[in-house]
Design a protein around this nucleic acid. Structure first.
Length: 599
DNA sequence: AAAAAAATGATCGTTGGC
DNA sequence: GCCAACGATCATTTTTTT
């Protein structure tokens, strides 16, 4: 993925920072209060004189001009934030809605900083009011499709803020049914969240094995609401989504990172767990992403996915390379079995030719995480020069430097004093694919490496999926989202599970080609349908697919991690990042599938 | 020979678990 | 304190295609 996950306008007003998300938490247990985005904020605002800067900047941050916001607050009063938002939306609809929302959608960050310079505020309205402002009748003819839908949803009793988000997430031309599904699911997720605040959800009443996975501290939330730096932070050029006073992530990553169990260690495995009713299939589902995401991300993901506890697993227990990932799924966890043959577990077994050249002072037995970037030839050359003057025994400082670089870039010894990055076919093997899985057919080496870097580790995923084999002796119908180079498909295939129909959604053409070519070279008798964009997979399309195949047995996928990964220094923006926010499409599609299949 | 695509290399912080 | 982390961007060179 990477270049492929972009979606015009997939960022949105509404959920673009965790601050706002935090503010949207209901303060009462009433599920219908969700939409009031300011339960926490307006209390505070009402106690101070004049419009709260927080309130103003919140709306400005959503892309409305300061003038507009002030007027809207004037009209509605500060407390009624839903009404303010509606007024604002109406203003923009009357003026000309596209420029506002699109601008915000694509350039949220610059936008925020734009407004931090004092006097650019206020011209937004002017910008388009003199263009093609036609008439101000408040009738539907002047409203865009989106505004009409919005009105309709508001008319149905949904808060405007939520409705706007739903349209954003489901796409402008989503059907009302689709939108209400989304809203319904979102409300359930938030209701659960509200409960979470009140109860010690995962208590220790299940004994030692069930460790506390959330342990929220409500006091910290209070401190957050009292934080006056909100506006300043929001306007920093690089919006930082992490903040000490923000929602505390209470996700506990187990050590060792073996999830609910790994092959060969039955004494450590869990065999039972209790899933909430809403989480139980059909369909089964399986979601994946990087384990070491910014704080709060996994608890958010979990909240959306029925509050199922993530299973964190490092693939170093399945192969010779580390890969720390979290998985949320509703599969049974007893009676798993590993793929055979068990792949080599050490670097030397996986790459026998390196053994001969491996210096005694390089103690690595496992590789670090396989990523999308490789070391340069220059670097390996520098390392060669650093080492070759010493006869197999460089001084400690040289050893230290070389080892640092080797770990950082996952280098292996391929000759006397020679280190090198892994070759694509070696990465394929380490990830559980056949050699040349990604080779040929017009795929460049760079794209190969990118696809591989973003892939599942097949043995790991297959171990989790193995429980399906006995349950589906006649094969499965699979919806594979963000398929990439087909890790899920390969895992199922290698388990000997027949693939009846696979609907695969993958934006990258080269990745689709790789999957298609694998499908053909393995002589699959089933049907592979590919779709390029998750946003094209709307309720209608799903209904059509489900009607023709009789429903999905499994919905599987890992959404883009690039805004979550620690390697990303530029845009580690969290779950609301440009790419990683596609998680919400996973959530949306899963719920739509459930709804449609329930009928 | 020009244009397009692919490859290369340098450089860029922060976070969070242990 | 140590260490790891499905990355992004830019300029430049090299290779391939037209």
């Amino acid at each position: 993925m990477g270049s492929n996950a972009d979606k015009e306008g997939s960022d949105s007003f509404g959920w673009d920072t965790e601050d706002e998300q935090e503010l949207m938490l209901p303060s009462s247990a009433s599920p219908r209060c969700f939409g009031n985005g300011f339960v926490g904020c307006s209390d505070e605002a009402s106690s101070s004189a004049g419009p709260s800067t927080k309130l103003i900047s919140h709306f400005v941050g959503m892309g409305f001009s300061r003038d507009m916001v002030l007027t809207a607050i004037d009209e509605n009063g500060e407390a009624n934030t839903d009404a303010i938002l509606e007024t604002l939306l109406t203003y923009s609809a009357l003026e000309k809605s596209p420029p506002k929302t699109e601008h915000v959608a694509c350039e949220g960050e610059q936008f925020a900083s734009e407004w931090s310079s004092s006097e650019s505020a206020g011209d937004f309205l002017d910008d388009f009011s003199d263009e093609d402002y036609v008439g101000s009748e408040d009738n539907d003819e002047n409203l865009s499709e989106m505004e009409r839908t919005l009105k309709q949803l508001v008319g149905m009793g949904y808060p405007a803020a939520e409705a706007a988000i739903a349209i954003e997430r489901c796409g402008q031309d989503a059907s009302i049914m689709e939108l209400t599904d989304f809203l319904c699911a979102a409300q359930m997720a938030k209701a659960a969240d509200a409960l979470l605040e009140e109860l010690p959800r995962f208590g220790s009443n299940e004994g030692e094995q069930r460790r506390n996975y959330f342990n929220g501290d409500p006091r910290k939330k209070k401190r957050f609401y009292a934080d006056d730096n909100w506006e300043r932070k929001r306007q920093k050029q690089r919006v930082r989504h992490r903040d000490p006073n923000e929602e505390i992530d209470t996700t506990i990553i187990p050590n060792p990172m073996v999830g609910f169990g790994i092959p060969g260690e039955p004494w450590r495995a869990r065999h039972q767990r209790t899933l909430p009713d809403e989480a139980i299939g059909p369909p089964y589902f399986y979601y994946e992403n990087v384990a070491l995401a910014p704080k709060g991300v996994w608890s958010t993901i979990s909240r959306y996915l029925f509050e199922i506890e993530p299973e964190f697993v490092d693939s170093k227990y399945f192969s010779a390379a580390a890969r720390k990932r979290g998985y949320i799924h509703n599969l049974p966890i007893g009676n798993r079995f590993p793929l055979l043959p068990i792949p080599p577990q050490t670097i030397h077994e996986a790459l026998p030719m390196t053994k001969r050249w491996w210096p005694t002072w390089d103690s690595r037995t496992k590789l670090n995480c396989l990523q999308t970037c490789l070391a340069s030839a220059q670097l390996t050359d520098r390392l060669r020069k650093a080492v070759e003057d010493y006869n197999d025994n460089p001084p400690l400082n040289i050893q230290k430097y070389v080892m640092e670089q080797c770990r950082k870039w996952n280098l292996v010894w391929v000759g006397k004093n020679k280190v090198a990055p892994l070759e694509p076919d070696e990465i394929e093997s380490l990830l559980g694919f056949a050699k040349n899985h990604t080779r040929g057919g017009g795929i460049s080496r760079t794209e190969r490496l990118k696809g591989l870097g973003n892939s599942f580790q097949v043995d790991t995923v297959a171990y989790h999926l193995s429980v399906l084999k006995d349950m589906f002796p006649n094969g499965m119908t699979v919806l594979s989202l963000f398929s990439g180079i087909g890790g899920a498909e390969v895992a199922l295939y290698r388990l000997g599970i027949h693939l009846k129909t696979v609907v695969s959604v993958e934006i990258s053409e080269t990745s689709r080609n790789i999957l298609r070519s694998w499908w053909e070279s393995t002589n699959q008798s089933g049907n592979l349908i590919d779709i390029d964009d998750v946003q094209k997979l709307d309720a209608d399309k799903l209904e059509q697919l489900i009607n023709s195949f009789g429903g999905f047995d499994l919905v599987i996928g890992g959404s883009p991690c690039n805004n979550l990964s620690g390697s990303n220094r530029v845009s580690r923006d969290g779950l609301e990042g440009k790419h990683s926010s596609l998680f919400y499409d996973y959530f949306r599609i899963l719920n739509q599938v459930k709804v449609i299949m329930a009928k």
